[in-house]
Computed example of a mutant assay.
Amino acid sequence: MATTAKPQQQVTHFLFSIVLATMACTLNRDDPLGGLPPKHCLDGGYKPVFTDKLLLEEALLFCKTTLENNLKENVNLVRVSAPLFVTRASGFNDNLNGIERPATFEPRDFPGTHLEVPFSLAKWKRWALHYYGVEAGKGIVTDFRGLRCDDDVDFTHSLYVDQFDWEKHISPEDRNVEYLKSTVKSIYKALYDTEQAVCEKYGIEPFLPEEVTFATSDDMIRDHPHATPKQRENILCEKHKAVFFIGIGGLKEDGQLRHDGRAPDYDDWITERPDGGFGLNGDLLVWNPVLKQSFELSSMGIRVNPEVLLKQLDLCNVPERKNFVWHKMLLDGTLPQTIGGGIGQSRTCQFLLRACHIGEVQHGWYNPAEVDILKKDGINLLGLGEFDADPSAKSS
Protein backbone atom coordinates (compact mmCIF):
# COMPACT_ATOMS: atom_id res chain seq x y z
CA MET A 1 0.00 0.00 0.00
CA ALA A 2 1.27 3.48 -0.79
CA THR A 3 2.33 5.79 2.01
CA THR A 4 1.46 9.37 1.24
CA ALA A 5 1.22 12.68 3.07
CA LYS A 6 -0.44 15.79 1.74
CA PRO A 7 1.67 18.96 1.37
CA GLN A 8 -0.52 20.81 3.83
CA GLN A 9 0.62 18.37 6.51
CA GLN A 10 4.16 19.76 6.35
CA VAL A 11 3.88 21.91 9.46
CA THR A 12 6.53 23.21 11.81
CA HIS A 13 7.27 21.48 15.07
CA PHE A 14 6.09 24.60 16.88
CA LEU A 15 2.63 24.52 15.33
CA PHE A 16 2.43 20.76 15.73
CA SER A 17 3.23 21.03 19.44
CA ILE A 18 0.66 23.79 19.96
CA VAL A 19 -2.07 21.69 18.34
CA LEU A 20 -1.13 18.62 20.32
CA ALA A 21 -1.01 20.56 23.57
CA THR A 22 -4.55 21.76 22.91
CA MET A 23 -5.76 18.21 22.26
CA ALA A 24 -3.93 16.69 25.21
CA CYS A 25 -5.68 18.95 27.76
CA THR A 26 -9.36 18.03 27.94
CA LEU A 27 -9.86 19.16 31.54
CA ASN A 28 -11.61 22.51 32.00
CA ARG A 29 -8.85 24.29 33.89
CA ASP A 30 -11.07 27.33 34.48
CA ASP A 31 -13.28 25.19 36.71
CA PRO A 32 -11.65 24.38 40.08
CA LEU A 33 -13.86 21.27 40.22
CA GLY A 34 -13.49 20.32 36.56
CA GLY A 35 -12.42 16.77 37.35
CA LEU A 36 -15.69 15.66 38.94
CA PRO A 37 -17.90 13.04 37.27
CA PRO A 38 -20.96 14.26 35.30
CA LYS A 39 -23.60 16.01 37.38
CA HIS A 40 -26.08 13.17 37.03
CA CYS A 41 -23.65 10.94 39.00
CA LEU A 42 -23.61 13.32 41.97
CA ASP A 43 -26.20 14.20 44.62
CA GLY A 44 -27.29 10.60 45.02
CA GLY A 45 -27.53 9.86 41.30
CA TYR A 46 -24.93 7.08 41.49
CA LYS A 47 -24.62 4.07 43.77
CA PRO A 48 -21.38 2.02 43.78
CA VAL A 49 -21.69 -1.68 43.00
CA PHE A 50 -19.22 -2.51 45.77
CA THR A 51 -19.17 -1.07 49.29
CA ASP A 52 -16.99 -3.82 50.79
CA LYS A 53 -13.35 -2.90 50.06
CA LEU A 54 -12.03 -6.46 50.14
CA LEU A 55 -14.78 -7.68 47.82
CA LEU A 56 -13.89 -4.83 45.48
CA GLU A 57 -10.25 -5.90 45.49
CA GLU A 58 -11.31 -9.46 44.70
CA ALA A 59 -13.38 -8.18 41.79
CA LEU A 60 -10.49 -6.06 40.46
CA LEU A 61 -8.20 -9.09 40.43
CA PHE A 62 -10.88 -11.19 38.74
CA CYS A 63 -11.39 -8.55 36.03
CA LYS A 64 -7.68 -8.26 35.28
CA THR A 65 -6.89 -11.97 35.42
CA THR A 66 -9.84 -12.89 33.22
CA LEU A 67 -9.02 -10.21 30.65
CA GLU A 68 -5.36 -11.19 30.48
CA ASN A 69 -6.20 -14.85 29.98
CA ASN A 70 -8.72 -13.99 27.26
CA LEU A 71 -6.18 -11.77 25.50
CA LYS A 72 -3.53 -14.48 25.55
CA GLU A 73 -5.96 -16.99 24.07
CA ASN A 74 -7.64 -14.77 21.48
CA VAL A 75 -4.58 -12.93 20.17
CA ASN A 76 -1.95 -15.68 20.71
CA LEU A 77 0.11 -13.83 23.31
CA VAL A 78 2.61 -14.94 25.96
CA ARG A 79 3.05 -13.07 29.26
CA VAL A 80 6.49 -11.49 29.82
CA SER A 81 7.93 -9.17 32.47
CA ALA A 82 8.47 -5.46 31.80
CA PRO A 83 10.85 -2.68 32.88
CA LEU A 84 9.84 0.03 35.35
CA PHE A 85 12.31 2.50 33.81
CA VAL A 86 14.40 2.94 30.67
CA THR A 87 17.36 5.17 29.79
CA ARG A 88 16.63 8.47 28.10
CA ALA A 89 19.48 7.94 25.61
CA SER A 90 18.03 4.67 24.35
CA GLY A 91 14.96 6.30 22.84
CA PHE A 92 12.87 3.43 24.21
CA ASN A 93 10.42 5.68 26.05
CA ASP A 94 7.30 6.70 24.19
CA ASN A 95 6.92 10.38 23.48
CA LEU A 96 3.10 10.43 23.34
CA ASN A 97 2.31 13.91 21.99
CA GLY A 98 5.91 15.08 22.38
CA ILE A 99 5.19 17.64 25.10
CA GLU A 100 4.69 15.54 28.25
CA ARG A 101 7.38 15.38 30.95
CA PRO A 102 8.55 11.91 31.97
CA ALA A 103 9.21 11.08 35.61
CA THR A 104 13.02 11.08 35.67
CA PHE A 105 15.77 10.23 38.15
CA GLU A 106 19.53 9.64 38.29
CA PRO A 107 21.08 6.60 40.00
CA ARG A 108 23.03 7.70 43.07
CA ASP A 109 26.39 6.42 41.85
CA PHE A 110 25.95 7.41 38.19
CA PRO A 111 25.24 11.15 38.01
CA GLY A 112 24.39 12.28 34.52
CA THR A 113 22.64 9.00 33.69
CA HIS A 114 18.99 9.85 33.12
CA LEU A 115 16.45 7.10 33.72
CA GLU A 116 12.77 7.60 32.87
CA VAL A 117 9.59 5.90 33.95
CA PRO A 118 7.99 5.07 30.58
CA PHE A 119 4.66 6.51 29.49
CA SER A 120 3.92 3.21 27.79
CA LEU A 121 5.89 0.35 26.31
CA ALA A 122 5.07 0.73 22.62
CA LYS A 123 8.74 0.86 21.61
CA TRP A 124 10.05 -1.52 24.25
CA LYS A 125 7.56 -4.23 23.25
CA ARG A 126 8.72 -4.21 19.66
CA TRP A 127 12.30 -4.61 20.83
CA ALA A 128 11.15 -7.38 23.22
CA LEU A 129 9.75 -9.41 20.32
CA HIS A 130 13.26 -9.32 18.82
CA TYR A 131 14.87 -10.00 22.21
CA TYR A 132 12.70 -13.05 22.93
CA GLY A 133 12.84 -14.29 19.35
CA VAL A 134 9.05 -14.37 18.94
CA GLU A 135 8.02 -15.76 15.55
CA ALA A 136 5.46 -14.17 13.21
CA GLY A 137 1.87 -14.80 14.25
CA LYS A 138 2.70 -14.79 17.96
CA GLY A 139 3.03 -11.95 20.47
CA ILE A 140 3.65 -10.86 24.04
CA VAL A 141 1.61 -9.14 26.73
CA THR A 142 2.91 -7.49 29.87
CA ASP A 143 1.57 -5.83 33.02
CA PHE A 144 2.73 -2.25 32.53
CA ARG A 145 2.85 0.32 35.35
CA GLY A 146 3.83 3.89 34.56
CA LEU A 147 3.54 7.55 35.54
CA ARG A 148 2.24 10.45 33.46
CA CYS A 149 2.96 13.65 35.35
CA ASP A 150 1.22 15.88 32.79
CA ASP A 151 -1.98 13.87 32.39
CA ASP A 152 -5.32 15.38 33.33
CA VAL A 153 -6.49 14.25 36.75
CA ASP A 154 -10.22 13.71 36.64
CA PHE A 155 -12.82 10.97 36.88
CA THR A 156 -11.30 8.95 34.00
CA HIS A 157 -7.63 10.04 34.09
CA SER A 158 -4.92 9.46 36.65
CA LEU A 159 -1.22 10.17 37.07
CA TYR A 160 -0.76 6.41 37.46
CA VAL A 161 -1.06 4.27 34.34
CA ASP A 162 -1.63 0.52 34.43
CA GLN A 163 -2.39 -1.33 31.25
CA PHE A 164 -1.96 -4.60 29.44
CA ASP A 165 0.64 -3.66 26.85
CA TRP A 166 0.72 -6.19 24.03
CA GLU A 167 2.62 -6.54 20.76
CA LYS A 168 2.44 -9.14 18.00
CA HIS A 169 4.97 -10.06 15.31
CA ILE A 170 3.36 -9.85 11.85
CA SER A 171 4.55 -10.27 8.29
CA PRO A 172 5.05 -7.22 6.01
CA GLU A 173 2.02 -8.40 4.01
CA ASP A 174 -0.16 -7.95 7.11
CA ARG A 175 0.36 -4.18 7.19
CA ASN A 176 -3.17 -3.44 5.99
CA VAL A 177 -6.50 -2.37 7.38
CA GLU A 178 -8.10 -5.82 7.08
CA TYR A 179 -5.48 -7.33 9.38
CA LEU A 180 -6.03 -4.42 11.76
CA LYS A 181 -9.76 -5.10 11.85
CA SER A 182 -9.24 -8.83 12.36
CA THR A 183 -7.02 -8.15 15.36
CA VAL A 184 -9.48 -5.62 16.77
CA LYS A 185 -12.21 -8.26 16.64
CA SER A 186 -10.00 -10.63 18.66
CA ILE A 187 -9.27 -7.92 21.23
CA TYR A 188 -12.92 -7.00 21.46
CA LYS A 189 -13.97 -10.63 21.95
CA ALA A 190 -11.59 -10.82 24.92
CA LEU A 191 -13.27 -7.74 26.41
CA TYR A 192 -16.78 -9.00 25.65
CA ASP A 193 -16.10 -12.41 27.20
CA THR A 194 -14.55 -10.74 30.24
CA GLU A 195 -17.62 -8.58 30.77
CA GLN A 196 -19.86 -11.63 30.51
CA ALA A 197 -17.82 -13.45 33.18
CA VAL A 198 -17.64 -10.44 35.52
CA CYS A 199 -21.35 -9.71 35.23
CA GLU A 200 -22.30 -13.32 35.91
CA LYS A 201 -20.03 -13.51 38.96
CA TYR A 202 -21.08 -10.21 40.57
CA GLY A 203 -24.68 -9.80 39.43
CA ILE A 204 -24.10 -6.86 37.08
CA GLU A 205 -26.20 -6.30 33.97
CA PRO A 206 -24.10 -6.90 30.80
CA PHE A 207 -23.92 -4.02 28.38
CA LEU A 208 -21.52 -4.65 25.49
CA PRO A 209 -22.88 -5.80 22.11
CA GLU A 210 -21.50 -9.03 20.67
CA GLU A 211 -19.87 -7.25 17.72
CA VAL A 212 -17.76 -4.11 17.48
CA THR A 213 -18.58 -1.45 14.86
CA PHE A 214 -15.84 0.10 12.70
CA ALA A 215 -15.77 3.79 11.78
CA THR A 216 -13.13 6.18 10.48
CA SER A 217 -12.11 9.65 11.59
CA ASP A 218 -12.22 10.71 7.93
CA ASP A 219 -15.89 9.72 7.53
CA MET A 220 -16.88 11.29 10.84
CA ILE A 221 -15.19 14.59 9.94
CA ARG A 222 -17.09 14.59 6.66
CA ASP A 223 -20.43 13.70 8.28
CA HIS A 224 -20.02 15.95 11.33
CA PRO A 225 -17.66 18.74 10.25
CA HIS A 226 -18.56 21.11 13.07
CA ALA A 227 -18.46 18.59 15.93
CA THR A 228 -15.48 18.28 18.27
CA PRO A 229 -13.57 14.97 18.38
CA LYS A 230 -15.27 14.09 21.67
CA GLN A 231 -18.69 14.88 20.21
CA ARG A 232 -17.99 12.65 17.22
CA GLU A 233 -17.01 9.84 19.58
CA ASN A 234 -20.20 10.33 21.59
CA ILE A 235 -22.34 10.21 18.45
CA LEU A 236 -20.80 6.91 17.40
CA CYS A 237 -20.74 5.23 20.78
CA GLU A 238 -24.25 6.16 21.82
CA LYS A 239 -25.53 4.63 18.59
CA HIS A 240 -23.38 1.49 18.38
CA LYS A 241 -22.27 0.94 22.03
CA ALA A 242 -18.81 -0.35 20.95
CA VAL A 243 -16.76 1.25 18.18
CA PHE A 244 -13.25 0.99 16.79
CA PHE A 245 -12.37 4.44 15.52
CA ILE A 246 -9.78 4.15 12.72
CA GLY A 247 -7.30 6.89 11.85
CA ILE A 248 -5.78 8.62 14.90
CA GLY A 249 -2.95 11.11 14.41
CA GLY A 250 -1.92 13.34 11.53
CA LEU A 251 -3.41 16.59 10.34
CA LYS A 252 -6.25 17.75 8.13
CA GLU A 253 -5.62 20.07 5.19
CA ASP A 254 -6.24 23.10 7.43
CA GLY A 255 -3.36 22.09 9.68
CA GLN A 256 -5.54 20.91 12.56
CA LEU A 257 -5.43 17.43 14.03
CA ARG A 258 -7.59 14.94 12.20
CA HIS A 259 -8.83 13.56 15.52
CA ASP A 260 -6.20 13.18 18.24
CA GLY A 261 -2.42 13.12 18.60
CA ARG A 262 -0.08 10.18 18.14
CA ALA A 263 3.69 10.01 18.44
CA PRO A 264 5.55 9.65 15.11
CA ASP A 265 7.48 6.52 15.96
CA TYR A 266 5.05 3.75 16.88
CA ASP A 267 1.61 3.83 15.17
CA ASP A 268 1.38 4.28 11.40
CA TRP A 269 -0.95 7.26 10.85
CA ILE A 270 -0.04 8.24 7.27
CA THR A 271 -0.55 5.10 5.17
CA GLU A 272 -3.48 5.55 2.80
CA ARG A 273 -6.25 2.99 3.11
CA PRO A 274 -8.46 1.65 0.28
CA ASP A 275 -11.33 3.81 1.61
CA GLY A 276 -9.27 6.94 0.90
CA GLY A 277 -8.54 7.70 4.55
CA PHE A 278 -5.19 7.66 6.29
CA GLY A 279 -3.83 5.60 9.16
CA LEU A 280 -3.59 1.95 10.23
CA ASN A 281 -4.39 2.56 13.87
CA GLY A 282 -7.33 3.46 16.07
CA ASP A 283 -9.06 3.63 19.45
CA LEU A 284 -11.48 1.12 20.91
CA LEU A 285 -14.37 3.07 22.44
CA VAL A 286 -17.53 2.03 24.25
CA TRP A 287 -20.59 3.85 25.53
CA ASN A 288 -20.35 4.08 29.30
CA PRO A 289 -23.84 3.53 30.75
CA VAL A 290 -22.91 5.13 34.09
CA LEU A 291 -21.17 8.24 32.74
CA LYS A 292 -23.40 8.41 29.63
CA GLN A 293 -20.52 9.28 27.32
CA SER A 294 -17.94 7.62 25.10
CA PHE A 295 -15.20 5.83 26.99
CA GLU A 296 -11.82 4.77 25.61
CA LEU A 297 -10.59 1.33 26.67
CA SER A 298 -7.70 0.80 24.29
CA SER A 299 -5.55 2.33 21.58
CA MET A 300 -3.69 0.16 19.10
CA GLY A 301 -2.36 0.00 15.59
CA ILE A 302 -0.04 -1.43 13.01
CA ARG A 303 3.38 -0.01 13.73
CA VAL A 304 5.65 2.05 11.50
CA ASN A 305 8.03 0.40 9.06
CA PRO A 306 11.33 2.17 8.21
CA GLU A 307 9.79 4.19 5.36
CA VAL A 308 6.83 5.38 7.43
CA LEU A 309 9.02 6.12 10.44
CA LEU A 310 11.23 8.52 8.48
CA LYS A 311 8.22 10.30 6.97
CA GLN A 312 6.45 10.72 10.31
CA LEU A 313 9.61 11.94 12.03
CA ASP A 314 9.95 14.57 9.31
CA LEU A 315 6.29 15.56 9.58
CA CYS A 316 6.75 16.18 13.29
CA ASN A 317 10.11 17.87 12.68
CA VAL A 318 12.02 15.46 14.95
CA PRO A 319 14.37 13.74 12.45
CA GLU A 320 17.09 13.60 15.13
CA ARG A 321 15.26 10.68 16.77
CA LYS A 322 16.54 8.38 14.02
CA ASN A 323 19.91 8.50 15.81
CA PHE A 324 18.50 6.84 18.95
CA VAL A 325 19.32 3.17 19.55
CA TRP A 326 15.76 1.97 19.11
CA HIS A 327 15.22 3.91 15.89
CA LYS A 328 18.47 2.63 14.42
CA MET A 329 17.38 -0.94 15.15
CA LEU A 330 14.11 -0.34 13.33
CA LEU A 331 15.72 1.36 10.35
CA ASP A 332 18.35 -1.38 9.88
CA GLY A 333 15.72 -4.14 9.93
CA THR A 334 16.60 -5.61 13.34
CA LEU A 335 13.11 -5.05 14.77
CA PRO A 336 10.21 -7.03 13.31
CA GLN A 337 7.01 -5.75 11.71
CA THR A 338 4.37 -5.58 14.44
CA ILE A 339 0.91 -4.64 15.55
CA GLY A 340 0.28 -3.67 19.15
CA GLY A 341 -1.51 -1.57 21.70
CA GLY A 342 -2.43 -0.99 25.29
CA ILE A 343 -5.61 -1.80 27.20
CA GLY A 344 -6.13 0.30 30.30
CA GLN A 345 -6.53 -1.98 33.31
CA SER A 346 -8.08 0.51 35.72
CA ARG A 347 -10.07 2.11 32.92
CA THR A 348 -11.48 -1.31 31.95
CA CYS A 349 -12.23 -2.13 35.60
CA GLN A 350 -14.01 1.22 35.95
CA PHE A 351 -16.23 0.24 33.04
CA LEU A 352 -16.79 -3.40 34.02
CA LEU A 353 -17.57 -2.61 37.67
CA ARG A 354 -19.72 0.41 36.73
CA ALA A 355 -17.69 2.93 38.73
CA CYS A 356 -18.16 6.64 38.07
CA HIS A 357 -14.60 7.63 39.07
CA ILE A 358 -11.34 5.88 38.21
CA GLY A 359 -10.17 6.49 41.77
CA GLU A 360 -12.75 3.95 42.94
CA VAL A 361 -10.73 1.16 41.29
CA GLN A 362 -7.17 2.51 41.51
CA HIS A 363 -4.79 3.83 44.16
CA GLY A 364 -4.04 7.35 42.94
CA TRP A 365 -4.08 11.02 43.90
CA TYR A 366 -6.89 13.43 43.07
CA ASN A 367 -7.99 17.00 43.72
CA PRO A 368 -8.67 17.10 47.51
CA ALA A 369 -11.61 19.51 47.06
CA GLU A 370 -13.21 17.06 44.62
CA VAL A 371 -12.50 14.12 46.94
CA ASP A 372 -14.45 15.84 49.72
CA ILE A 373 -17.45 16.33 47.43
CA LEU A 374 -17.30 12.70 46.30
CA LYS A 375 -17.19 11.43 49.89
CA LYS A 376 -20.25 13.49 50.80
CA ASP A 377 -22.03 11.79 47.90
CA GLY A 378 -20.99 8.35 49.16
CA ILE A 379 -18.32 7.89 46.49
CA ASN A 380 -15.17 6.73 48.27
CA LEU A 381 -11.88 6.51 46.38
CA LEU A 382 -9.48 3.63 46.88
CA GLY A 383 -6.60 3.85 49.35
CA LEU A 384 -4.75 7.14 49.85
CA GLY A 385 -6.67 8.65 46.96
CA GLU A 386 -9.35 9.62 49.47
CA PHE A 387 -6.98 11.70 51.59
CA ASP A 388 -5.48 15.17 51.26
CA ALA A 389 -1.90 15.58 52.48
CA ASP A 390 -1.89 13.35 55.54
CA PRO A 391 -1.38 9.68 54.59
CA SER A 392 -1.77 8.67 58.24
CA ALA A 393 -5.40 9.76 58.24
CA LYS A 394 -7.80 6.97 59.02
CA SER A 395 -10.38 5.84 56.51
CA SER A 396 -13.97 6.31 57.61
Results as ranks from 00 to 15, higher is better:
155 F>G: 06
280 L>I: 05
229 P>D: 02
196 Q>D: 13
15 L>G: 12
14 F>G: 13
47 K>L: 07
364 G>W: 11
340 G>Q: 03
288 N>C: 09
331 L>H: 11
130 H>F: 10
366 Y>C: 09
228 T>Y: 13
18 I>P: 04
179 Y>E: 04
138 K>W: 08
291 L>G: 02
154 D>Q: 03
72 K>S: 03
299 S>Y: 09
273 R>M: 07
196 Q>Y: 12
144 F>T: 09
174 D>T: 10
257 L>N: 09
34 G>V: 01
329 M>T: 08
334 T>G: 04
317 N>D: 15
107 P>L: 00
152 D>I: 03
250 G>C: 05
323 N>L: 14
9 Q>N: 13
275 D>R: 12
114 H>W: 15
160 Y>F: 13
217 S>Q: 11
47 K>H: 13
297 L>G: 08
131 Y>N: 00
269 W>R: 10
9 Q>C: 12
344 G>E: 04
93 N>E: 08
308 V>Q: 04
152 D>N: 14
152 D>S: 06
9 Q>R: 11
153 V>G: 12
108 R>Y: 12
211 E>F: 05
161 V>H: 10
160 Y>C: 06
60 L>P: 09
376 K>V: 01
151 D>W: 07
17 S>F: 04
336 P>Q: 11
279 G>S: 08
280 L>K: 08
198 V>W: 09
281 N>H: 05
265 D>Y: 02
279 G>E: 01
374 L>P: 09
58 E>D: 12
246 I>L: 04
266 Y>G: 02
299 S>P: 07
170 I>C: 00
246 I>Y: 09
103 A>T: 15
327 H>L: 03
180 L>G: 00
197 A>F: 04
356 C>D: 11
305 N>G: 04
235 I>V: 10
363 H>W: 06
42 L>T: 01
26 T>Q: 15
257 L>W: 05
221 I>C: 03
244 F>D: 03
224 H>E: 10
337 Q>K: 05
62 F>V: 00
73 E>H: 14
297 L>C: 10
227 A>C: 13
360 E>A: 08
55 L>H: 14
339 I>R: 03
32 P>K: 12
124 W>A: 00
164 F>T: 00
62 F>I: 01
192 Y>N: 02
119 F>E: 06
383 G>N: 02
175 R>D: 08
111 P>A: 15
83 P>V: 02
177 V>K: 14
209 P>K: 10
97 N>D: 15
30 D>H: 15
316 C>V: 13
298 S>T: 11
312 Q>G: 13
315 L>A: 12
70 N>P: 02
215 A>H: 00
167 E>L: 06
41 C>R: 00
223 D>R: 14
268 D>W: 11
378 G>E: 01
324 F>W: 15
210 E>I: 01
380 N>L: 14
381 L>H: 05
197 A>W: 09
172 P>L: 09
49 V>W: 02
76 N>I: 10
75 V>L: 15
85 F>M: 06
383 G>W: 04
128 A>K: 12
43 D>F: 12
208 L>N: 01
340 G>P: 04
94 D>F: 07
105 F>D: 03
366 Y>A: 01
347 R>T: 08
345 Q>E: 11
395 S>E: 01
335 L>C: 03
348 T>R: 05
25 C>L: 15
221 I>N: 11
92 F>K: 09
382 L>G: 07
286 V>M: 10
265 D>N: 00
266 Y>S: 07
237 C>F: 08
240 H>T: 04
32 P>S: 13
375 K>W: 03
166 W>E: 03
